[in-house]
Structures are given as C-alpha cells and as structure tokens.
Amino acid sequence: MSRTVADAIVACLKQEGVEVIFGIPGEENIRLVMALEGSGIRFILTRHEQAAAFMADMYGRLTGRAGVCTATLGPGAINLLLGVADATTDSTPLVALTAQVGLNRIYRESHQSVDLVAMFRPVTKWADIVLTPQSVPEMVRKAFSLACSERPGATYLAIPQDIEAAPAPPRLHTPARNALPRSRPRRRPHRRGRDTPEDCETTRHSRRTRCRPCTRIGCARKAVGSPERARRDDIHGQGGHT
C-alpha cells in the first residue's frame, strides 16, 4: 500500500517522540489509527473521548511532553473538548488530533460537519486545519512546539478525511524537532547557571524587570525542587526548542 498522509502524520509523531496516544477511532480517521499499527506508538483505546483527553492531559502534566489524544470528527471531537480545555487552563502540554469532513464537502451543508477549528480555538493555544498534504510536517511540528513552549497548553489539528487518505508527497521535508514556528521569535539558547541579577535588564517604561526568557519546555512552575529540576533537564534534552 502506498504511503498516505496518515502515514506521514505518524512519522511526524514519531519524530516528536510520541510514545502513547489516547483515543477512539471513527469512520473518518481509520487510516491514521491504522497507520499507528507497528509504528511503536502505543494506542490506548478508550471508552469515551473525554476520558482520552483527560488521560493525555495528566500524561502531559507529569512528563512535561505533550500528551496526545485523538478522535473522529463531529461528536468524537466535541467529546474531546473538556479535557483539552482542562490542559490549557492548567498550562499542560497536549496535542489533540481529530478527523474532519473532507475538503471536498466541507464548504457546504454536510453530514457530521461542524466548525471544529472554531470550537477548539477558545480552549487551545492554536487550532487549525490541515489543508494540504505538504503542510503536515510543519503543522505537526508547530502543534507540538506551541503546546510545549511557555505558557504550555493544548493545540489542535483537524485532519480532513480526504487529506488523511491522500498520497503523501514523495519528499516531505520533516522539520527538526527543535524547529520553532516562524510566528514566534527565536530565542537565545539558555545557558545554565549564568543568569545573575546583572543579566536582568529593566525596561525603560516600567518598573518591571525582565530576565532572559525561559526557553525550556514544561511548566517552570513544576521545576522548583531537586527531583523536578533533574527531570526538567531531561525534558530540555528531549524536546527543548532553544
């Protein structure tokens, strides 16, 4: 069987270091779920999408890496919303992937079609729809990068049914795992142990003091205390975007 966009998405998830995905397959994302077979990524089949999102939520909170959940379009996606919102409001990295009706019918009144991007936008840091196979590596990278960078939270990608089933372009450029989305400023690498009060600079217009921005993924909030500090450095090594 030739390589599809679903396979390309799974390759991107592997590139992100995803080890487990929580969710329920539906008619419109069967290729994605099938592409996970043999990928090394564990699929935890749940009995409700809301629960899948909560599982990804707590997984993300504890590991500092984005928990991943998936569902089909319409009802499946709507059921994910609560856990996705919980991740964002508790600054937890999470990536939600759902199916959407195909681009060949999304523009008209169409079976099971609701505007999922509009629905997820208020409860995520970024919500978008994959409009072309070529965009998959960049959009998946952006979803993970934004979810994990401060302030951590959830991101959402809708994958139209016909895009998922389309052939993957022969030479898909996969961005490196530390590539930053262009919309965000590239920051200087963080050098451990070199921040001193002298490094802080006071802005001219306020009394606020701005130290060198934190560039590690995971909630810095979690990082007070020695075991967490050690783990934070692990996180930095695995998925930091400095």
Partner: peptide, 16 residues
C-alpha cells in the same frame, strides 16, 4: 506586580 520577573523559575530563585 511591583516587580514582574519573567524567567526560568529555578534560575531566578537561585539568582535571588
């Protein structure tokens, strides 16, 4: 905040 520090928390506390 009279002072708002945007920083890695551990490093900021160490520095303080």
């Amino acid at each position: 905040p009279d002072i708002s520090i945007e920083s890695d928390i551990v490093d900021a506390i160490d520095a303080l």
